[in-house]
Design a binder for these strands. Structure first.
Length: 843
RNA sequence: GCCGAGAUGGCGGAAUGGCAGACGCACUUGACUCAAAAUCAAGCGUCCUCUGGAUGUGAGGGUUCGAGUCCCUCUCUCGGCACCA
């Protein structure tokens, strides 16, 4: 075991000692090369994170993965391997890169596998993790396994439970009875974010509603902070937009309507207070709490019938916008707050109990849904907004802003002004107020499944809900449990787990038998990584505040409103509680695309189009596989797998090795005193590549990085065959530069060739090359000469020549002349280093 | 329906408003070979009257000396949201 605290120089010394030992250089790159260097890197602790250099830290994180039984798939390589190449560049650039790895190990697949095969989730998960660890090592990434995190281990979930308790103390975790999303196939409740339209995000089964008492995290408390925090994040705009939409902030007014012959009031939320005078009826959601109270006796039968009918409708039907709206009058009337008119109160399935107040003021003239409903049931339609200009098509429903009409003293105002003025009046009358509504719902975290972190709560008949004291954590997940899914929490069937003395009164009580959503486990793992062995606290703030935020986070876009929103919420909450001093955990974010099967379909075993990395690695070695992934696709887009592509990359590696042999044959000749044209040409390509790669790696443009490497190789190959005289020293230096640039992208191959060049230390301890602008200035440049934007000629001019001289050459160029005949030269535009455009008009 | 992203050779994909197609794949031709593979060299958008010219980045308009790139309209593809008051 390598001690953790090591200075860079001691690392360097160890590495040197090791590298001084005679290295067996292999004839040709392949998996043996991989194995050899992986062992050396591990033995020398080459990639161990050095805490002494935390001020230079670069926390590079790829979303950890679920441990699966099979070998690594293309997606793992794509995410982890390429992120590693990015991190390697950062490391060569002088950063102390922190690149940990771990496993999101709780969750349904292991439990479902157990139900099918009888293998306990703990056993299968541990087995899978062992397999994956081994597999991940063959990738040759810089993972520092000293910092591994496994979420299903008690030393991790102890702190997941701690997190739950802290949120509970703070009032951010609470229990309530509510209709919740229920997946009949997974047999558990789900959070809103985990329902994809109307189906379960995991298994695509259509979700139903179930009335349950469950634990929620009060993410809505952070709605505003989560929106504001997005501003400063270097995240894809698309992802930020998705989060914004998910939070769904909408500004409007809350208006209270009195009910005739009743003390009850109906509160509605509206973004269109300007249309208040057009309100001709009220609608409550069928589930609204006031329905029972307000329904007239003679309407009760019909109302009950209707509520039953709505109950039986499936979610998918009710939410469909093509669904024909239905509803019934409940026999009561509301009073318009400004006119005193009596407005019939209806219940209808188009009003959602879960948004706003579950009630709306219906303005059929200015809302498409109210319009459809009013038309269908013959309710009055009163127009109160006119088009701002006569050209506006003002058929009803007219949903745009305009000028108020038939609205008492507010007539003539614009919608925007009226919204403010009408609310002011309502405030004066104590009938309403300006308010903001969010679409975001609190995060339901209870799951009626076995393989998760137990909720650290005890239910006591006398004391009620009692949190498990911190010093009694973790609440261990018992091993022997019947986890056949039947909708009951498996833990409720375990007597040994269930029964426990109440921490407060000591009388026998019952533990909470639900487990936490696995998204809770993954909402804080990035905080545990740097301090993963801390037994007395989830982390040491003095360390974490220096290690975080994550500098680059890489993972799939499918987590945009799940994991990424949850993690931000938890960090905001932890900051408020003083456990960390930052609110945003992920400074920068990159979403990788998806590698599809050769048929363009998503890879899957059932489709038979899955590509096994192992087969290719066996033949070509892991760097060839990694290089192909880097070269063959745009990282942000992905694309279909191609067999031909990987052969092309294997060929590139062959050529690199042949060139290395040539460099060996040529020996260590001197560098030329001054560079000749042939050398200048090579220098140009090398430095142009350094500049491009350094820039492109920042945006994960691996494909163009590899292209630039190929250009260097082509250039050196040309130099080798064509230059006379040829300078061995120059060739060797240029090749060494190439190997440095290659190192992050093909770490084993580069290491092998670096050793072959006679170097005694690792190429991965080298500094990243810097380009020289001087090398990018060519002696002569080729300029395109255009006449009216069309290329007519190409001229060679010295690069330092003045604009006037360029014009002169261009105007007298042989093939240009015919196009100038009989024309008047209007102007001549010179773009240095690129082109000349002669603008002419007929004389 | 609303919001967002995208459309470039036979294919994967490049191009701070400045020579479209970098870098590759596939293909064609040549060299080497008894032959094949490998390798090396050359060619490779389309069309024509072919040492040249015209045309060309989903379609149509516009701005500009100059547009794949900026603006408008449309088509299609992909993502997200969707009775959210």
């Amino acid at each position: 075991m390598v001690p953790r605290k090591r200075s860079l120089s001691s690392l360097f010394r160890d590495a040197r000692l090791f590298y001084f030992k005679e290295a067996i250089l292999l004839a040709k790159y392949g998996k043996e090369t991989d194995a050899k260097w992986q062992k050396k890197w591990e033995d020398t602790g080459l990639y161990k994170f050095n805490r002494d250099r935390v001020d230079k830290k670069f926390y590079c994180l790829a979303m950890f993965s679920y441990p699966s039984a099979a070998n690594l798939h293309v997606g793992h390589w794509w995410n982890f391997g390429l992120t590693d190449s990015y991190a390697r560049v950062k490391r060569m650039q002088g950063f102390e890169v922190f690149e940990p790895m771990g496993f999101d190990a709780f969750g349904l697949p292991a439990e479902n596998f157990a139900i099918k095969t009888g293998v306990h989730p703990r056993d299968s998960t541990q087995q899978n993790i062992a397999t994956m660890r081994g597999q991940l090592r063959t990738m040759g990434a810089m993972f520092d396994w000293d910092y591994e995190v496994v979420t299903c281990e008690p030393d991790y979930y102890k702190w997941t439970q701690w997190l739950f308790l802290k949120l509970y103390e703070r009032g951010l975790s609470y229990r309530k009875a509510a209709p919740v999303n229920w997946c009949p196939s997974c047999n558990t409740s789900l959070a809103n974010e985990q329902v994809d339209g109307t189906s379960c995000e995991r298994c695509q089964t259509e979700v139903t509603k179930k009335h349950l008492t469950q634990w929620f995290f009060k993410i809505t408390h952070y709605a505003e902070a989560l929106l504001a925090g997005l501003e400063k994040l270097a995240w894809p705009e698309k992802t930020k937009t998705m989060q914004k939409n998910w939070v769904g902030r909408s500004t409007g007014a809350s208006i209270r309507f009195a009910v005739a012959d009743s003390t009850a009031e109906i509160e509605v939320f509206t973004t269109r207070a300007d249309t208040l005078f057009g309100c001709t009826y009220m609608v409550l959601a069928p589930e609204h709490a006031l329905v029972d109270l307000l329904t007239a006796p003679e309407r009760r039968g019909e109302v009950e019938l209707y509520r039953d009918y709505v109950n039986k409708q499936s979610e998918i039907d009710r939410l469909s916008s093509t669904h024909v709206k239905t509803g019934v009058f409940i026999g009561a009337h509301a009073v318009h707050p400004l006119t005193g008119d009596q407005l019939p109160i209806w219940i209808a399935d188009y009003v959602l109990a879960t948004y706003g107040t579950g009630a709306v003021m219906a303005v059929p003239a200015h809302d498409v849904r109210d319009f459809a409903f009013a038309t269908q049931y013959g309710l009055p339609i009163t127009r109160v907004i006119g088009g701002a200009t006569p050209e506006v098509d003002d058929a009803v429903p007219f949903v745009e802003d305009g000028i108020l009409v038939s609205s008492a003293e507010w007539s003539g105002l614009t919608s925007a002004t009226a919204r403010e003025r009408i609310v002011e009046q309502l405030v004066t009358n104590n009938q309403g107020r300006a308010t903001i509504n969010y679409r975001l719902r609190d995060w339901l975290v209870s799951r009626q499944r076995y393989w998760g972190a137990p909720i650290p709560i005890v239910h006591c008949d006398t004391c009620g809900i009692v949190p498990v004291p911190e010093n009694e954590l973790p609440v261990l997940l018992p091993y022997n449990v019947d986890f056949t899914p039947d909708g009951q929490s498996p833990l409720s069937k375990s007597e040994e787990f269930l029964r426990t003395p109440c921490p407060q009164c000591g009388i026998e009580a019952r533990r909470d038998t639900d487990t936490l959503d696995t998204f809770v486990c993954s909402s804080w793992y990035y905080l545990r990584y740097p301090d993963n062995r801390n037994a007395s606290a989830p982390w040491d703030p003095s360390l974490i505040n220096r290690m975080l935020p994550v500098d680059m986070y890489v993972g799939g876009p499918e987590h945009a409103v799940m994991h990424l929103l949850y993690a931000r919420f938890i960090t905001h909450a932890l900051c408020d509680m003083g456990y960390v001093n930052f609110t945003e955990p992920f400074k920068a974010l990159t979403h990788q695309g998806i590698i599809l099967g050769a048929d363009g379909e998503k890879m899957s075993k059932s489709k038979g189009n899955a590509v096994s990395p192992d087969a290719y690695i066996d033949i070509y070695g892991s760097d060839v596989f990694r290089l192909y992934l880097q070269f063959g696709f745009n990282y942000l887009e992905g694309g279909p797998w191609s067999e031909d592509g990987i052969k092309a990359v294997a060929r590139f590696v062959d050529r690199v090795e042949r060139l290395a042999d040539r460099v060996g044959e040529l020996g260590r000749g001197a560098r030329p005193q001054s560079l000749g044209p042939a050398e200048r040409e090579v220098e140009y390509v090398v430095h142009n590549s350094i500049k491009s790669i350094t820039r492109d790696i920042e945006t994960f443009g691996f494909n163009t990085c590899i292209s630039r490497l190929m250009e260097i190789l082509n250039s050196l190959g040309r130099y080798d065959t064509e230059a006379a005289p040829k300078h061995a020293g120059f060739m060797r230096d240029s090749f060494a530069q190439f190997i440095r640039l290659l190192a992050p992208f093909a770490p084993h191959l580069a290491e092998e060739l670096w050793a072959k060049l006679g170097h005694k230390n690792s190429v991965h301890l080298q500094e990243w090359p810097q380009h020289s602008e001087a090398a990018l200035v060519k002696d002569t440049v080729e300029l395109a000469v255009q006449v009216n934007g069309r290329i007519r000629e190409k001229i060679l001019v010295p690069s330092d020549v003045e604009e006037e001289a360029i014009k002169a050459v261009a105007l007298t160029a042989e093939k240009v002349a015919p196009f100038l005949a009989g024309m008047k030269i209007h102007k001549v535009i010179v773009i240095k280093g690129s082109l000349v455009n002669i603008v002419v008009k007929p004389e």
